[in-house]
Amino acid sequence: MLRVEPRCRVIIDNDWAGDPDGLIALAHHALSPANRIIAVTGSLTNPMFGPPAGQALAGSALAAELLQVLAVPAPVHAGPDSPFTGRPRDSAAARAIVAAANADGDLPAVLVCAGPLTNVADALLADPGIAGRLTLAWVGGAAADADEYNYFTDPEAAGFVLGNPDLAVWQFPLETYRQLVVSLAELEHRLKQAGDAGAWLWERFDTLQVPDVVKFGPTWCLGDSAPLLVTGLDDVTSSYETTGTAPSRRLYKQLDSRLVVEDFFARLALNNRA
């Protein structure tokens, strides 16, 4: 293949024990030569996935296992299982984010969060100076008044992070990230064709435990993969509104979902053949 030059350093934060589309996004980042992963952190999950105690650690173990399967091993640092308190607390995830943000590098740093902003808030509280050293690409929030999962899992953290005047934020809200959809049939078929990594990922979907009130339809949203457009790919075929000048504030409106989905399945297939 033609050589792809790295374009950014990436810190990836998610609630890995929740919706497995986060693990799809992690695999995509790990297989993308245009970004360089410098830290992976795991956050709390919404109680809808069961009692939160131990979930951040369990999810981090899942993320580490996936990276091992992909032959891209990297440590995953777990955060707390409770929401942001506004008070300093010791957190392996927050320490990892601070260290990665403060590390010297020849590429810009992007903190990709596709879950609650708990670990990001703890990191900014521990070291406010990191706000000027990275860009936050967040999958969450909603342009309309909607009960959006990533925001309402920890609204205090969201308010603290988004209210930071020194932090550049590129936001992929509910109305936008829902554009990244595949059918369950396509997801099962293409993951099962992609070797050990694909089979591992499909098992996470096939064994997902959710309350009985949750009913699955014929499609699945891969919204956590939206930030690949600003890390591992390119947003030239997507669109956003600029809501601030300094620092940069973007609200993404339209996504090139074909680019994201097809690149993921192609990279997973290529990794299987390697």
Rank of each mutant, 00 (worst) to 15 (best):
G18P: 02
P52G: 01
F84Y: 10
R204E: 04
M48Q: 08
Q179D: 15
S225R: 06
N164G: 01
G159M: 00
S60A: 14
A157T: 08
L70W: 08
L111G: 06
I97C: 01
D166G: 13
G217F: 09
T207L: 09
L23A: 05
V261G: 13
L23V: 09
G79D: 06
A168G: 07
A143I: 15
R36M: 09
Q68F: 07
N164K: 12
L251K: 14
T207F: 07
Q193N: 11
E5R: 10
T41I: 01
C113I: 04
R9W: 04
F265D: 08
V72M: 14
T231Y: 08
K192S: 11
T245S: 09
D256M: 10
V72K: 11
T243A: 04
C221W: 01
D212C: 02
Y240S: 12
D154Y: 02
G18N: 02
L136S: 01
D15L: 13
A78R: 00
W16E: 00
D122S: 04
T85N: 11
L107D: 03
V236A: 13
S91H: 12
D15P: 04
T135P: 10
V72G: 00
Q209V: 11
P128E: 03
V236I: 14
V214K: 09
P73W: 00
A61D: 12
A199I: 02
A17R: 09
D235Y: 11
L187C: 05
E5S: 15
D13T: 11
T118I: 02
